[in-house]
Nucleic acid binder design. Structure first.
Length: 894
DNA sequence: GGGGGAAGGATTC
DNA sequence: TCACGGAATCCTTCCCCC
């Protein structure tokens, strides 16, 4: 939604301005130009003044002012030498960023105009000439353009809006209806970019680069669209074509893009060209035809710019920044920092205190900013000043928490509070179970009648999702709060409960365990590998655990939205290597079982320290599911500290050693076990000096493949899978140094550094292993490319003197097997991989950029921090800053 | 000193 | 007439423990 929450005025012209920037009107929004700000602010002030809310806002404002004071003191202490060093560091990073600037993508940000209000007006034509808003007396979600002329806007309480505009009609929200409209719009989006990313019901990012390529070849007929092809309404209230006249155009009849309006154009055909602008205009045209609502769009080489652009010609317009560095820099020059998503009222104010209002000023003051702000923050600022943003659009990032909260009138009775708490837990449990999620951290959020917010969290030993379990934790937190408040009683106006630390997310860390589970049949809860062995299974118990015990299928297609399989159990959790390896190893196990035994005696101590084993092939191997009562289904994680990888003594016709991959015929199990023991010893010795490396490699293998890499599973059968990785790019801007990857370098010339600190594993990994462009094709490409050349093993970095892919893959398999064995043997400290470029590349391929970043950041912290972290001010955090806009600037041009 | 949990805060729609 | 939301994510700081 457009600038929904930019509710701090850029400047306040009322008295006491310094304390009012949080409350005063922000008219920096389409349809709000030229308002009598003083008058509006006066009304807002008069209405708010004296309230608890107002007092709290003043308090927060004072805190921000204190932060600014501290920052200014810090600034005063900065020496010339420090500035010089800082400038050098900034310049260096700037150079790297410039080198990695990617102008090759065409990113579009589409934003529906006054979405909720527009839907309501469409369905209730009598509203179209009236000032109206959607929401309630306590809060408005959005307003139409008539209302905006009175200063009524989103994120404003309804009662204040009523003061500003007594005739304002406030419509209640109807999310079902908005969702239905949104679904229609998304259908159109998917035709331009099947991987588009939805931000909210009315916003999306698309990468239409590929579409534009194809579009060039399209005949005119494919670019011809007819007026008024909307057939039905979204909620049964909109009658259709006969009523469409005058609806949508009236919303924004004087808007920049009104040429696409519907009036009097029924049946006419419009032909769109092949250019970027034409493609986006066509998309907007089709949205309008289908929904009678208008959308605005921004077109730019990255997400950050596209977002800013979509606001430029709002409503019903579009704006494009061509992919030229000079133009980008020119565009950024006068852009107020506040216009950039991620810069909120606090950041704006802090920057303003340093004399920074525009993005050009931001660029000029980077050395200073690097000394005053955290690394994350100033890197963000640097990206902004250079007009850089992410060129990779991530589609579905994994949910990290789920919560529910409620605001109410003053509540002081403890019994009532417990009762409400239980109710919230009930609701949350239902939501969690609906999505098959379980989390270990329960957080209680409380807001007292003075608007002071407190959160109390507790992390359990096991993941929970039932009302009882959540409430058990939440009520203790509530009790502590009730008992500690002084003076009693605790007077609340809001209570919320959140569950986070989902085991589906956490399990990305020990994913390697899944490889180790290659012998397991029937699949089990990957989440039960926790600090509390077996606890998740116990906690999950009964039907709850079912959602985590779903058979894992090796999906070929990308799961649709409707496929609500918990992400924790999907093949997504295993890397491509892992899945291929698991499968191969599992086939070996099948051979063992088929040959007459399934008593693989991995460990006698399965119950004490068990590794639940995921079964990537459960659909096809479920006949061999273990009962779970014996040790068969588990591998003791300590078992291989001593080589004890035993298989029961029976003569088997055909076995393959899981260590060296050799096939053995007519061998009895004693001999086979002996062979494995020897292999293990050999492997252990081989790796003795590289344990730490392997430990790091183990982590690399933990990474998660992208959603799209599900497609790769169909190639797992092929011998070339070991090298058929979708991603070949490191996130540090280093060139690949091995022959194995050298041919990719040409493809990936455009790269940039992603200096993101603390990048979440889930996001970075999925991003890193992005294979949007037909991964299957990559397999072919790589395979054919490699024929006849020397190859370097991505695991051990050794150059292999063979061009034979089968031999090479065999070697990679063996290396991978050794990784598994090293895992058996215990943990390994991470090491510096600076001398292992191939591993770095592998890490990039496997998608675990988060870990790469961590290693690099560690060295960075040691070497480059000019001020102790504690002295650096905190600022800036957003889901749209580095994560959405900047991280992932390393696009995978596969 | 580093890792990780807890708490608070900023930002977004 | 009273009256300022809900959900999610990320970042920073603090603190404890190893």
């Amino acid at each position: 939604m457009e600038d929904h929450h930019q509710d701090a005025a850029v400047s306040v012209s009322c008295s006491g301005a310094d304390l009012l920037s949080r409350i005063a009107l922000n008219d920096n929004k389409a349809g709000m130009e030229g308002l009598d700000r003083d008058k509006i602010n006066k009304v807002i002030l008069e209405t708010s003044k004296g309230s608890k809310f107002y007092e709290n806002e003043l308090k927060k404002e004072r805190q921000v002012n204190q932060r600014i004071e501290k920052m200014m003191e810090q600034k005063a202490r900065i020496t010339k030498e420090q500035m010089k060093q800082a400038q050098a560091e900034v310049d260096k990073l700037k150079c790297e960023l410039e080198r990695g600037r990617d102008l090759g993508r065409v990113i579009v940000h589409v934003d529906m105009d006054a979405f909720y209000a527009a839907v309501e007006m469409r369905d209730c034509p009598e509203l179209k000439d009236k000032p109206m808003a959607v929401g309630s007396m306590s809060m408005l979600s959005t307003s139409n353009y008539h209302a905006r002329r009175f200063g009524v806007r989103a994120a404003m309480p309804g009662f204040i809006a009523k003061k500003l505009c007594p005739n304002l009609v406030i419509m209640p929200t109807n999310f079902d209806k908005y969702r239905a409209v949104s679904a229609k719009v998304r259908e159109i989006f998917s035709e331009y970019d099947p991987h588009f990313m939805t931000v909210s019901l009315d916003e999306a990012y698309l990468d239409i680069t590929e579409h534009l390529e194809q579009r060039k070849l399209w005949p005119e007929s494919m670019r011809t669209h007819h007026m008024c092809d909307a057939k039905t309404d979204d909620a049964g209230r909109f009658a259709g074509e006969s009523e469409k006249d005058g609806l949508s155009p009236v919303l924004f009849e004087d808007s920049p893009g009104s040429s696409t309006s519907l009036s009097g154009a029924e049946g006419k055909a419009e032909v769109f060209g092949t250019s970027v602008e034409e493609a986006v205009r066509e998309m907007r045209f089709r949205i309008e035809q289908k929904t009678t609502l208008t959308a605005s769009a921004g077109i730019a080489p990255n997400m950050m710019l596209a977002k800013v652009c979509s606001d430029k010609n709002k409503p019903n317009g579009q704006y494009r920044i061509p992919p030229e560095r000079q133009v980008v820099m020119e565009f950024m020059k006068d852009l107020p920092v506040r216009k950039v998503s991620g810069v909120g009222k606090v950041t704006e104010k802090m920057l303003a205190a340093l004399g920074i209002v525009s993005c050009a000023q931001l660029g000029q003051q980077m050395a200073l900013l690097s000394l005053l702000f955290s690394e994350t923050s100033w890197h963000h600022f640097l990206h902004i000043s250079l007009g850089l943003g992410s060129t990779y659009i991530e589609r579905d990032s994994e949910r990290k928490s789920m919560s529910t909260e409620r605001t109410f009138g003053e509540m002081s009775d403890a019994e009532e509070q417990y009762s409400l708490c239980k109710e919230l837990c009930h609701d949350l449990a239902q939501d969690l179970q609906r999505e098959g999620l379980k989390g270990k951290t329960v957080t209680l959020k409380l807001k007292n009648v003075n608007f002071e917010v407190k959160t109390k969290a507790f992390t359990l030993q096991y993941a929970v999702c039932t009302e009882e379990d959540i409430f058990a934790a939440a009520k203790d937190l509530l009790k502590a709060e009730i008992d500690s408040v002084s003076p009693p009683p605790l007077k609340l106006r809001l209570m919320g409960v959140r569950v986070s630390g989902f085991i589906s997310v956490e399990n990305k860390k020990p994913l390697q365990r899944s490889i180790m589970g290659f012998l397991q049949k029937g699949g089990s809860d990957p989440g039960s590998f926790t600090q509390c062995p077996g606890s998740a299974l116990k906690a999950g118990g009964g039907s709850d655990s079912a959602s985590f015990l779903k058979p894992q299928s090796t999906e070929i297609k990308v799961p649709s939205v409707s496929e609500q399989i918990p992400k924790s159990t999907g093949p997504k959790q295993q890397s491509f290597f892992q899945r291929a390896q698991s499968k191969r190893l599992q086939q070996q196990q099948e051979q063992i079982i088929i040959s007459g035994t399934d008593t693989t005696n991995i460990s006698a101590d399965a119950a004490a320290s068990t590794l639940p084993i995921t079964n990537p092939q459960s659909d096809t191997t479920s006949t061999n599911t273990n009962s779970g009562t014996d040790a068969t289904g588990y591998i003791n994680k300590h078992a291989t500290l001593k080589p004890s990888f035993k298989i029961s003594t029976q003569v088997l016709q055909f076995l393959t050693c899981p260590v060296c991959n050799r096939e053995m015929r007519d061998v009895n199990l004693t001999a086979f076990n002996h062979h494995i023991d020897e292999c293990l010893k050999g492997s252990a010795m081989d790796n003795e000096h590289t344990d730490s490396d392997a430990g790091e490699r183990k982590e690399e293998l933990n990474s998660e493949p992208p959603a799209s890499s599900h497609k790769l599973s169909c190639d797992e059968e092929k011998p070339s899978t070991s090298i058929s990785l979708p991603v070949v790019e490191t996130d540090d801007g280093n060139d690949f140094k091995t022959p194995f990857f050298s041919h990719r370098k040409k493809i990936n010339e455009k790269r940039s550094v992603v200096p993101n600190k603390k990048r979440p594993l889930s996001e970075s990994s999925s991003k890193a292993s992005h294979t949007k462009h037909n991964p299957a094709a990559v397999v072919t490409e790589l395979s054919s490319d490699l024929k006849g050349s020397s190859l370097t093993c991505p695991v051990c970095s050794q150059l292999q003197s063979t061009g034979d892919l089968a031999l090479f893959n065999r070697h990679v398999d063996m290396c991978l097997n050794q990784e598994v064995l090293l895992e058996f043997r215990g943990s390994h400290p991470p090491v510096d991989h600076s001398d292992a470029p191939a591993l770095e590349s592998v890490r990039g391929q496997l998608g675990d950029q988060g870990r790469v970043s961590k290693v690099r950041e560690k060295s960075k912290r040691q070497g480059s921090s000019l001020l102790p972290p504690a002295k650096k001010s905190k600022v800036l955090s957003t889901k749209h800053t580095i994560d959405k806009f900047f991280k992932g600037n390393t696009r995978q041009n596969v």
